[in-house]
Amino acid sequence: MAHDDDPPESLGAIDDDRLRLIFTWCHPALAEAARVALTLRLVGG
């Protein structure tokens, strides 16, 4: 197996609103019920 000594290239900022919302919904400042509801809304559509 080949070994690559070069460091990985930076991907830069992730520009995905859904990912940003998921991390926001996980914030402990939100009530647990609100976090669950928002997560289910995202998953369920």
Rank of each mutant, 00 (worst) to 15 (best):
R41Y: 15
R41T: 01
L30Q: 02
R18H: 09
A31K: 04
L42M: 14
L38R: 04
A37N: 05
V43C: 09
G12C: 04
G44M: 07
G44A: 04
D17M: 06
A37D: 14
C26R: 13
A34C: 02
D15R: 01
R18T: 07
T24H: 06
L40A: 10
L42T: 04
A34I: 02
H27D: 15
D16E: 13
L19Q: 10
H3T: 13
I22V: 15
R41Q: 11
I22N: 08
L40D: 14
A29E: 08
A34H: 10
R20G: 01
A31Q: 05
L40C: 07
P28V: 00
L19S: 05
A37P: 01
A33G: 10
S10Q: 08
A37Y: 05
L40H: 09
A13H: 02
D4R: 06
A34P: 00
H27Q: 08
M1V: 03
I22F: 15
D15L: 11
A29Q: 07
G12R: 01
I14M: 12
R20D: 08
P28N: 06
I14E: 12
E32N: 05
E9W: 06
R18M: 12
P8G: 02
W25F: 15
C26M: 15
T24M: 14
W25S: 03
D6K: 06
D6T: 06
A2T: 02
C26E: 10
E32Q: 09
A29S: 12
D17V: 07
A29L: 08
A29C: 04
P8Y: 13
D17I: 05
H3L: 15
F23G: 04
A31D: 12
S10G: 09
L19I: 09
D15S: 04
R20H: 12
L19Y: 12
A2M: 06
D6I: 04
H27E: 12
L40S: 09
H3N: 14
W25T: 00
I14N: 10
E9L: 11
D6W: 14
H27W: 12
A33S: 14
P8N: 03
R20E: 11
A34G: 01
V36W: 05
P8H: 05
G12T: 01
L30W: 15
M1I: 01
A31S: 07
P7Q: 03
L19D: 11
A33Q: 09
W25M: 09
S10L: 11
D17C: 01
L30I: 01
P7K: 03
L42G: 00
I14D: 10
T39H: 13
P8S: 04
E9C: 01
D15W: 04
R20A: 15
